[in-house]
Design a protein around this nucleic acid. Sequence first.
DNA 1: ACGACCCCAAAGCAATACTTATGGCATGGA
DNA 2: TCCATGCCATAAGTATTGCTTTGGGGTCGT
Lengths: 300, 300
Amino acid sequence: MDPHRLLVFREIARAGSIAGAARALGWTQPAVSQHLRHLERRAGMALVLRRPRGVQLTEAGEVLLRHADAVATRLHAAADALDALAHLREGTVRLAAFPSASATVVPAAMSLLGGRHPGVDVRLREAEPPEALDLLSAGEADLAVTFSHAGQEPDDRPGLVREAVGEDPVLLVLPRSHPQAVPAGRPVELRSLAAEKWIAGCERCAAGLRRACEEAGFVPDVRHGTDDYVVTQALIARGLGVGLLPRLALDAFTAPGVAVHPVPGLRPRRLHLAHPREADQIPAVRAAVRALRDTLAAPA
Amino acid sequence: MDPHRLLVFREIARAGSIAGAARALGWTQPAVSQHLRHLERRAGMALVLRRPRGVQLTEAGEVLLRHADAVATRLHAAADALDALAHLREGTVRLAAFPSASATVVPAAMSLLGGRHPGVDVRLREAEPPEALDLLSAGEADLAVTFSHAGQEPDDRPGLVREAVGEDPVLLVLPRSHPQAVPAGRPVELRSLAAEKWIAGCERCAAGLRRACEEAGFVPDVRHGTDDYVVTQALIARGLGVGLLPRLALDAFTAPGVAVHPVPGLRPRRLHLAHPREADQIPAVRAAVRALRDTLAAPA
DNA sequence: ACGACCCCAAAGCAATACTTATGGCATGGA
DNA sequence: TCCATGCCATAAGTATTGCTTTGGGGTCGT
């Protein structure tokens, strides 16, 4: 049952004649006539009776017409649904982002996106960069916000593309009672902290810390490790060590008992968006990328 | 939204890969690839993500798939419905027949048809031949049982075809008390009734009567006219006249007070089936024609 | 009786759809 | 590491399909 012919048949029924259908379709009369002939041959019976002023549907024709109408309705519905997705009246983006971004720039970007395209739905899933890329590879996420520390080669995965969207300065976090914590906000050289006990973050952040210390000429004495920046600050506030935290984490939360200081020469971590190579052919994803770009480009 | 491509897309989704869909369809891989490309171009966005082991549907692809499934289901339903009509598991025949046939051969034929094809539904409408042909021309009936009296040219209408299916002898009906009514069933010459009062049937039957009398050498004295054979016999039984009635009418009903006699040389009326020219391309009509033919060919 | 309007059939041409041929990319095993 | 395999895309060629052209028959109005 060729669906194209079915739609032609629908035009015949609507026009009441083959010639009328041809006019409606912008074709010649024999073109429509042939389609009808093929349909009738496949059906094994007459679908219309040829009368002087046009055609009249047989019972089979009436039956077929109902199905043709249903098909046509579905086709229109399909086109409308795609149109809604194309024009961002609908759509879903499954977004994976690391915690400190999920608490800061991502909500801001979601808000921006929601203002631009109210119909687009974002589903956020918190994931550290490696897991986030896993989600992309597995097809369980459409878009990921990731970071990589200075000197680290961000992992490239087949099929995924990465876009640098900004930097996130890494700052020194001291106990408020620390001798170097005054005056507030003064730059502190890393090498002056060679004797401190350190609290490292996640594996990738710990690697970033070690590399920075190595460049400063010492090996850090890492006593504790946690990828939770609230925990890190709690430890620091109690004087159990010092640490490095990116600004996004501190934007999300700064403990009362800690002091934050810039470290001259300490390179920021770089922020990335990642998604499957063809995902920028998905309007909702493209819009989400734009919203995240715009948010990250704007001054904090 | 080209429905053919939509079905190809459905195969892609089912197979999980373009190459798999091509195998399922018996095509080469680029053929399917091109269909998908066209769909995506018209949609304005990606419908699948190309991955090393196949493709993964995007949100738009999932949406489209649902519509494609609905379309495919409808197409199958349409094919099934036509198949049911083609194989006479379903179907309707709108039959028009004149009264005396409606009371005799038509019920018999309907019963025969019902035994052969229980799913086929016959809707009978009683109509004298001219009206029956009108119904055919107007598309309000599919098949008509008509008659024409000897010497009458049966009216041919454009677009309709006629088939002779038998004869119906015309018999003389006398009051039982009539002098010529004994012995029962003896042949009676028409000219011996020249002095009688006559009761005529419908217009066409009255014309048949006049013609028969003319051939017998007299003009009948027509006192009453009715196309109802029960009324006719009631009048005859009361001695208000004599008349001619076809055997089908008498098969349907014979009044107690009348006697029936053959008339030598009186030509029978001819029975016809009529239908639109292409209506024999309708299985249910064809089956009804066969049933009527078989019934009329069989001995009463 | 003619012209207008339906319809069908056959043959020609052009757009579409599929094939062939080739290359890129990712995965898995020798 | 490299080759083999399976996925995909692109480009060009071919063949079918689908539409047009042309010609002819029938019915209905003026």
